[in-house]
């Protein structure tokens, strides 16, 4: 189903539904089952993923085997590993599916290739890149300076329904805190707000 990605572009560019449909018509869909890996460390793949349905996770594994979640990508998010998708270097990260997921595969050449149909796409690509950098800057700042509660409150603003979709330990991993700290934060919030 390419409609969702077409709609995503249409909402961000001054184009018609037909132009959007034409722009995405060359793209391929991929479905992955819960738990299946889309990208392994060491892979070389020049592709990004737009999530149609489901949920992806972008993470690293340290020397002790512990997972560290960098990013979640639910519906309407784009996810890619820059090492491999842009710089043609082996990925050091992993991408897997937390739920049964359907993605649109967006290759590196997609944006230049469709600029004849939609010239504004290059500007959108730059804007998305800046947005991604802004997101990472904020994320670094939260990890360096914010309390566990502040990180959690920021998380539920960004990903309101993920608390219903992913286990606590994954949220804790994303926030860079222990699952016990996350429990404590939630308990404290309940004390403050439970009527």
């Amino acid at each position: 189903m390419l409609d969702r990605f077409a709609n995503y572009l249409k909402n961000r560019l001054n184009i018609t539904a037909d132009q959007a449909a034409e722009a995405v018509s060359c793209l391929k869909i991929k479905t992955v089952k819960k738990g299946q890996i889309l990208l392994n460390a060491g892979d070389l793949k020049s592709e990004a993923y737009f999530v149609n349905s489901g949920l992806l996770r972008y993470f690293s594994i340290d020397e002790k085997g512990k997972e560290h979640i960098i990013q979640f990508a639910p519906e309407d998010w784009m996810l890619s590993d820059r090492d491999t998708s842009i710089f043609n270097e082996e990925s050091v990260f992993y991408i897997d599916a937390i739920e049964d997921t359907e993605v649109v595969i967006v290759k590196k050449d997609f944006f230049p290739a469709i600029k004849n149909i939609v010239p504004e796409i290059l500007e959108l690509n730059v804007l998305m890149l800046h947005n991604s950098i802004r997101f990472m800057q904020k994320r670094i700042n939260m990890l360096l300076s914010a309390t566990a509660e502040e990180r959690y409150l920021d998380f539920i603003k960004l990903y309101p329904n993920l608390t219903l979709r992913v286990p606590q330990w994954m949220i804790a991993s994303y926030l860079g805190i222990t699952p016990e700290s996350l429990s404590r934060v939630r308990k404290d919030l309940a004390k403050k707000h439970f009527r």
Binding site: I156, S183, L189, A190, F194
Partner: peptide
């Protein structure tokens, strides 16, 4: 949506926000 069954979409958004903010209380795993 998921574990919530309401009448209007905005009541679902409210349920998610209330759950996230601890308004459902707390229970140990």
């Amino acid at each position: 949506y998921g574990p919530f069954l309401m009448n209007k979409p905005e009541e679902i958004q409210q349920a998610i926000a209330d759950y996230n903010n601890g308004k459902f209380g707390y229970l140990d795993e």
